[in-house]
Structure formats: structure tokens, C-alpha cells
Design a protein around this nucleic acid. Structure first.
Lengths: 193, 193, 193, 193
DNA sequence: TATGAATGAGGCTTCATTCAT
DNA sequence: TATGAATGAAGCCTCATTCAT
């Protein structure tokens, strides 16, 4: 009968859940597994989270927020648009590797329908931030004239595909530099190359 | 007891399974759901497929083969590398829209571990075909000098991300032309623009 | 679409059922198995037997009758009581080896509750025939004075155990001669040894 | 939700399973039946036994061990061979009456193939112990010269048949004294009668 | 007389959730 | 705050049985 502070138990539940969900997915992870990993009783889980869905929802939110504040927000402070895009890829991928379960967020595996609203919100913010960067690049004559919104989506898709690969088919991972190289060549005005 | 031809029942099962698997994933789809959607009894399912796994495996194989013969193989007959790449995206995406469930293949959600070998095989072929196209583009001085294998992977990733979006977050779909435009600009030698 | 005479189909069903029931038991044998073995369709089975229970019931009856007419009845014609008992064991065991499924009858495996009445009837007849033999043996001063009914039961039990072993634990089968030897020594008056 | 001690639940499951298995056999007994009889939920069963097979296996092992230590082992301490054999029957039958389900062990109904190894082992030990008794009887000139192993098998078969009857056809049960009488007369040298 | 696709109840098992302690 | 035995719905699968052909 370990008497831990409630705070600590909660933390351990979250850590265990993140680990297991990303290892075995939502359906593949049972509450018992989480309890065991967290060194807590099954009943204990329900003291901190109403049910499995709520727990996973919390995890998603948390990760999304972390992604936002660690990866997206800092982009706004970078002057050079090309540099910002490089950072976007580098940081996002770095983040993904530390949080393999990120795909749960970017990839949304089947049957993980809840949390959709929250995800959409983040995706929108992400799109806006990237579009803003592209726009600045166009205005500063650095980038070709292309629709910023569309390019933003493209970049996000590339990243999404990459993240998926990180988890699913590592043998298909491309070199980041090549990717950035091609993309930037595609965006930059010839005069800037 | 509706008496259908065995062939028709089989077809309906496949259609229903494809639809449901792509909507709700492997774990999220129950045999009862498939049976209901196919207008057949649960037991009837097992007249045509040994079990759930075998059913889903069949679906995967079928789609992969279709993708290979309809999208990948024709690329070999296209002379111009840029044209071939355009076709790759156009056809693949067209195929994806007709088969929203393709993500089951390109995306592989958690807990869908079987059929992995078959998928890897296709991915390898896909990579080789694309790399071959890039190589030809470089040799003909059309493309910049970049590692063909890496670019192939990049292209596949972009497509993968796109396919994911087709299913998961349609609001994030980029315009195909923009994508092709950026990528080709990134690949083509300045002198070819 | 084999057009067989109804008689032949029936015969083949019976043979197949006997074979499979004795191999795999009642629950372990499916109607489909029987149909396949008989080279007939599943539906065809039901043209000849109302259901599985009725089929197995018929089999039991048939075998019991065969046992009665082939093994038990002939005993009445044997003059010498000792000889009759020898015959009882020899013939019964011979019959059992040809009809491994006999245990279904003598042994009545669990969950085979129907057909009980018919079995009881045969057991009663068997007991009477044996008791009659013993009685004659006692009257002719050949056997010790023992309760004929009880000895009859004992003999039947020994046989039952033997039959069980035939099917279940062949490594535990005793030599028939030893058995007969011991039993007869136990029954015969010393003066007759 | 009745809160019983884990120990009590386990005990009740075992008792119920023993009862039902011996009544209706392995296939004839469903987990639902056991749960109901034990006054527990279906899921509860799986808290104590991994699955149906494991449950039945446990039962078999338990009973076999009990039979060995209560019935077989004590025989070794009995000086007189005849007395030992009498004890064998008396104790074994007594045990059987208390454990009607013993036939599950001695009888092995169809489709109860697991646990066979364990049973064979016990049968071997049983045969050896009995053979040893017979041998001593022969050496001490008490018994006729017969193959001890064979007689051992015979005795086991008689017991097996008896046990079967205890459960299946009580109207066919012979009187124990008669049995012992006949058998011993069959074994004992005339001079010892 | 014969077929075999179709049915659906029911078997085993898992697991999110509850609640007495 | 914590436990873990208990619950029961629901999942996968089998199989005796039916019936349109």
C-alpha cells in the first residue's frame, strides 16, 4: 500500500499510458497494462481519469500543447523564412523521435476518433504559422509567388508523412537535408539560390 | 434465408470490409459490423474467409496489387521524368480517392502488424521505380544532382502524408498543382525552368 | 450430383458417422465432417436423419443389437458354463476391437445422455444371460456357490473396463488368457481345477 | 458485487467445475454453467484460471494426486498381499464414491486429450505398486504363479469398470465382497483357501 | 433425392469499469 | 487515496439446422 502523493501517481499514470499507447495503440493497450506499468491498482486509475477515453484525450492534449509551445511558437521569432522552415522540420522531427507516439496525434490511427476537435484546432494554428512564414518569404522576394496556404499544407503533409514513417516504416525514411534542400530549391527564387 | 450466389456474397463482404476497415480500422471494426453492412449473417462471413485476419489480409493484398498495376507499373512507360512524377502523384491520388481505405496500406495503423511483409515488398518496388525515374532525370540533365534513392523516399513520404490527409483531415489537403510545382522546381535544373 | 439410391446414401452416412463418432466423440464430430466423409451434402444428412441426436441414437441402437445378436445370443447355445464365459470375453473383445466405438455404448462418455434407456435394456439382458450361465455352472457343481447376479455384474464390469482400455489406454490392456484364467480359477470349484 | 475472499471464490469454482465436469463432461460443461454454479460471473472465472483447459487440467492433477496419496501409497505399508488387494478395492471405491468425477480421470471421455501424460504417469505407478504386491504374494507362496504385471492390469481394469459404473450405471454395480472373493480365489493357491 | 449458402444461438475469452473494503 | 475481486457486455468464432434451388 504505497502512499504516494496524488500528484506522483498521476504523473506515473500519464507516463505509462504514453509509453503503452505509442507502443501498442489505443485498443492494444488495456487499463490493466497501464496500471501495472504505473505500479498502481486498476481502481487507482479511475481516481485520476474518468475513463480510458478521457485518459487518452488528456494525453493528446498534452502532447499537442507541448508540440505547439516547443516547435511551433518559437518559429515566430525566427527572422529568415528559409531558416524558419528548416527549423520547423528539424524541431518537429526531433520532437517526433522523442515522442514516437506523436503519430497518434499527427497520424490519428483509425478508431481514434475522439480528440479530433482539438487536433483540428492545432492543425489550423500550425497552418497559419507556416503560411505566415511563407508569406513573409514571398514579400521579401525570397520565395517564388505561390499560395502560402497551399504551401503550408504541403509542408505539413510532408512532415506528416515523415512522422508516420518514423513509426511505421523506418526503412523508408529520407534524409532530412535532401528534403529541405529540394523543398527550399522549390520555394526559393532562382536569384536566391 | 436470402439465397445469393456465392460470388455475390463474397463481393459484398469485401466491399463492406474495405469500407468499414478504412472507416474504423481493424480493431474498431467488428465482424458483426461487416456482416450487417454486407447484409449477411455473422456465420456467413466465415464461409468466405477463415477469420478476421485473413479477411483483412486479403484486402491488403488486393489493394496493393491494384495499386502496383494501375499506378506504379505504367510509370515505366513514360519517357519524360517530370511527366512521370506528375503522373505518379496524379494517379496515386486519384487511386487514393477511389480507395480511401488505401491508408490502411500506406498508413498502417497500430495493431495491424500482419501483412507487413507484403507491404514492405511493394514499398521497395515503389522506391526502385521512382529512383529509376529520378536517375534518368539526372542523367538527361533535367534534374539537379541529388541522391535518387533519397528523393524517391521523399516523394513517397509526401504521397503518404497526402493519402493520410485524404482520409483523416480533408481540410488540410493541399492543391496537387502547387505540390507538383514546388517539387519539380526543387528538382529541375534552373536551366530547365 | 451423384444420384445414388437412397439406401446407399443412408448406409454411407451410418458408416461415416460410426467412424467419426468413435474417433472424435459426439461433440468432436460435426455434421459437416460426417457429410464430407460420406461424400454427401450437409443438407443430405437431414434427409435420412432428423438431427444429430437421432443419428447417434440410431447408431447406438444398431450396435447394441449387433452386440446382442453376435455376442450375447450365441452364448445360450454353449453347453459348458466355463466355455460360455470364455466365449463371452473372447467374442465381446473381438467385437470391441472391430467397433472401437463400442465404448460409446458400454462406456457412455459424458454428455451422451440420450439412448440411456436402450442401453439399460441391453445391460439387463446381458446380465440375465450371464447370470443364467453362472447359475447353470453352480447347479452342475462346476462353480462355487456365489450369487449369480453379482458375478454377472462383475464379469460385465471387467469387460467394460477392458473395453474402455481398448480405446483409451492400450498400454494398460491385460492379456485375455490371464484374465480368464484368474476369473475361472475364482469361480471353479477346487475339485474342478 | 459480492466481495468474497479470493480463496473462497477459487474453492467454489473448483467445486462447481468438478461437479459439472463429472456430470456433463468437458464439452458438455460451459464456462457459463460453471460460473452460475459457483455463484460468480463469467469473467470472474478467468481471474483464477487462465482458460477452460487449464481449469480442467488443474482438476485432474489435483484428483490424481489425491488418489495417489490416499489410496495407492498406503498400500505399500500393508504386509499381507491379499489384505493389500482388498484395501486397494475398498479404498479406491470409497474414494470414487466421494469423487464421482474420478471417472474423468480413470475413464477419460472423448475429447479430453490433455492431461494425458499426467494420467499415464499415475497409471504406471499404480501398475507398479500392484505388481509389486502380486509378486510378494507369489514369492510368499500365497498366490498362484501368474504374471504379476498382467494381474496388476486386470485388477486396474476391474476397478476402472467399477468406477465407471459408479457414475454411469449404478444398477450394474456388483457387491464388492463378491468381487474380492472371486478375484482372491482366482489368485490364491488352493492350499491357502 | 440432393445441394450448399445462409442463419443465429451459443461457446470461449477479454476488458473497461465498479465498489466493498 | 488505494486496492483488486467482481461484473457483464461484447468480440471472435463454430456448428446444427434450414431452405431456395
Amino acid at each position: 500500500m504505497n502512499k504516494r502523493s496524488g500528484h506522483e501517481s498521476r504523473k506515473r499514470i500519464i507516463e505509462s499510458a504514453v509509453k503503452l499507447f505509442s507502443q501498442s495503440g489505443y485498443n492494444g493497450t488495456t487499463m490493466r497494462m497501464i496500471a501495472k506499468e504505473a505500479g498502481i491498482s486498476v481502481g487507482g486509475l479511475y481516481l485520476y481519469f474518468k475513463n480510458k477515453e478521457e485518459l487518452s484525450l488528456y494525453l493528446i492534449k498534452e502532447k499537442l500543447n507541448e508540440f505547439y509551445s516547443k516547435v511551433l511558437l518559437p518559429l515566430k521569432d525566427i527572422q529568415s523564412p528559409s531558416q524558419a522552415l528548416k527549423e520547423y522540420f528539424t524541431k518537429a522531427i526531433e520532437f517526433a523521435k522523442e515522442n514516437r507516439e506523436l503519430i497518434i496525434i499527427h497520424g490519428k490511427q483509425q478508431g481514434f476518433a475522439f480528440g479530433v476537435e482539438i487536433k483540428k484546432e492545432l492543425l489550423k494554428k500550425e497552418r497559419e504559422i507556416l503560411a505566415e512564414i511563407i508569406k513573409r518569404g514571398i514579400e521579401s522576394q525570397e520565395f517564388n509567388e505561390i499560395e502560402p496556404e497551399e504551401v503550408a499544407k504541403l509542408l505539413m503533409n510532408i512532415l506528416g508523412g515523415y512522422l508516420l514513417s518514423v513509426v511505421v516504416e523506418p526503412e523508408n525514411l529520407f534524409k532530412l537535408e535532401v528534403c529541405i534542400d529540394v523543398i527550399l530549391k522549390g520555394l526559393l527564387k532562382r536569384s536566391n539560390l
